[in-house]
Design a binder for these strands. Structure first.
Lengths: 207, 207, 207, 207
DNA sequence: AATGAATGAGGCTTCATTCAT
DNA sequence: CATGAATGAAGCCTCATTCAT
């Protein structure tokens, strides 16, 4: 059962250092990567945001790519955990979908910088790290897919194409990190509420 | 009337050189930028895709940023023209929406490389060029918004929030360039048909 | 009184770094600039003279032009101080003139490389730096002018045109850096002694 | 007799093309070299001054260095001819010296751009061309030297050191191209008259 | 843990020059 | 003759990274 897989991931891991300094570096780097892309960000940029010298990150991360990997890994892991936790599996598919979409949307809005790194900087990872991350991404996509499939099965959802609709809902949520804040929205919850309703419409269970 | 604005944009323009060589460079650069980001792409990368020396682009573009600008400008311009042309303004809002979403989705799928440059590399533009591009982007968003507004007015659409739903539909279409091909789709038309239907669901006019 | 201005200039200043490495770079660069001109000198040339990599100068100077500025500034400053210090203001104009011309000539001969940079590379400075340097140059010219004026006043000098003769004496001294060593001279003092006598002839106080 | 050597030099020569276009290029290049140094001048700079493309100079000069050589050669040649012609060998040494210094000074002032190239860009010449030019330079220096020696011999001049004084007078004249126009002078004749008088003072024959 | 100096590699761009037109 | 496109070499400078301190 993949629900229990998340447990595996909450073990203390060696990718994402828990030291305070390392965490600060991750935050600064995520912002820089989000603004300028991985390739457009220099170690100087990151260090400058922290008032440190460029050499200061090396005791914490072996390289710039390792830093990206840590950010990406942590971001994906948080997503998996968040979505898994947000799914009230004993409720109706509609309630479950609304809950998960609300949580996912809110997270993308709140952590839009991190979100952009997670979504747009995959190609800058080393092949090994890329593979590592891909397994987490599949996990994310499946959380919503399971719900759609459950709704389709019990007839509460009417979908032309489970995979396609799943893709669309995930896509909708993911793209939030690109434009938020903007388009008239500055409150993550407002987008989250709207998108929860729109997701229900997409599965033919809307108002 | 903003419908007629597109006419203004079809004038021969000075940003996007029409020489054969310049066009080839734009294509190669768009692919490179899409794969590695603007900051992650070198002038060598671009030249190598064309079998030219890195210096060969300079008779055609003053700098790497000017090249990005030309690609971005052309991409946005094509989008505006495409969407405007795809809107059968005498039809019902539902027909219009389906037509425009189908066209937009198909374009993002077919030209996903160009799409990524258009959507994700805005921050690499110089401030002046960025401003220039922003005016085109507003135009794009308004095409779908006008249709939603028409449908809301005549009662064929039921939307909780015109701006929010407009944002969502645009977002859905735009994000296609991120994942296509993938998620089981390799045919632009298949995604386009699906998304046309999903857009109708989002405005409360779905099947 | 402009005699006291030199004091202002002896303050530790921020243009000319006092670090050992920065000073070595200045010396190597001055030699290179003197031999090949600023535009004809590469950062590689300079680094090679020191056995360093071309990048090694950048922790010390922001750019090649900043390096030129530091050399030029230091050179002009040393000249001002040298001339000021060499003027025994309580002596007769003839003694003063001989002393100052001897010192100036000797300096131009001894530091001919630096002298060429100071005299011939002004146009390579940025406009701001050029302006900064000009104020120092005016100071230099005035040291000898004051002496000529004093001699003209007390009748010990007979000059057709104070400004013109001043220009000529300065010109004579300055040009030493162009040809020295050469023309049969290899000893700075020999030229200095000759030029001290010639300067007296120019003011009509020669033997 | 070296006076007659100049005849040899007035033969039509192959270095300095007499075509109109080639001459225009030489003028533009001399100005550019004078302002920015040989190394600091690009073929584009030169072409831009003429409203031509950088490739346009190649039908006239094989390379940038050949162009410098032509300018330098022509400049030196003109100097030799000028000085030789300006020396009224039947007059007294004082008259001869005044005449030659006046001519030399006036030329350096009038042709200060060309003068700078002639005096300061020797090191940019190829070794072969450099050698070629050196023979002309020796000729120049000898014109004044002969006069000083004649004056010393007949007692009209009193000089401590013929070679040194010769060096000084040449140096004085040459340095004019560095500062002219400036120092209050804009009329070549004014400097020429002053310097003629100063030269007489330097040889102990002044007023 | 953090830094400033240093570096090899490489970035973008310009250079002098060639060549087809 | 003159040009615009092209190029190999090179220019200045920045990069990620190391290392002594």
């Amino acid at each position: 059962m993949s629900e229990t897989d998340a447990v595996r991931l909450t073990r203390p891991n060696t990718v994402v250092s828990e030291s305070k300094a390392a965490a600060r570096i991750r935050v600064a780097a995520a912002e820089a990567f989000a603004e300028n892309g991985y390739g457009g960000t220099t170690t100087r940029d990151i260090a400058a945001r922290l008032g440190l010298s460029p050499a200061a990150m090396y005791p914490h991360y072996k390289s710039k790519e390792e830093l990206l990997y840590a950010i990406s890994y942590e971001g994906h892991l948080l997503c998996v955990e968040l979505l898994t936790a947000a799914d009230p599996i004993d409720e109706t598919p509609a309630v479950r979908l609304a809950s998960v979409v609300r949580a996912f949307t809110s997270w993308q809005a709140t952590h839009h910088a991190r979100g952009r790194v997670v979504q747009y900087e995959l190609t800058a990872l080393s092949p090994d790290h890329y593979r590592e991350i891909l397994t987490l991404r599949r996990e994310i996509s499946r959380v919503i897919e399971r719900i759609i499939r459950a709704g389709a099965k019990d007839g509460s959802f009417v979908v032309p194409d489970v995979a396609g609709v799943n893709l669309a809902i995930n896509s909708l949520c993911v793209d939030v990190c690109r434009w938020f804040p903007g388009g008239g929205f500055t409150d993550p919850d407002a987008v989250a509420d709207l998108y929860a309703e729109l997701a229900l419409r997409l599965v033919g269970a809307g108002t």
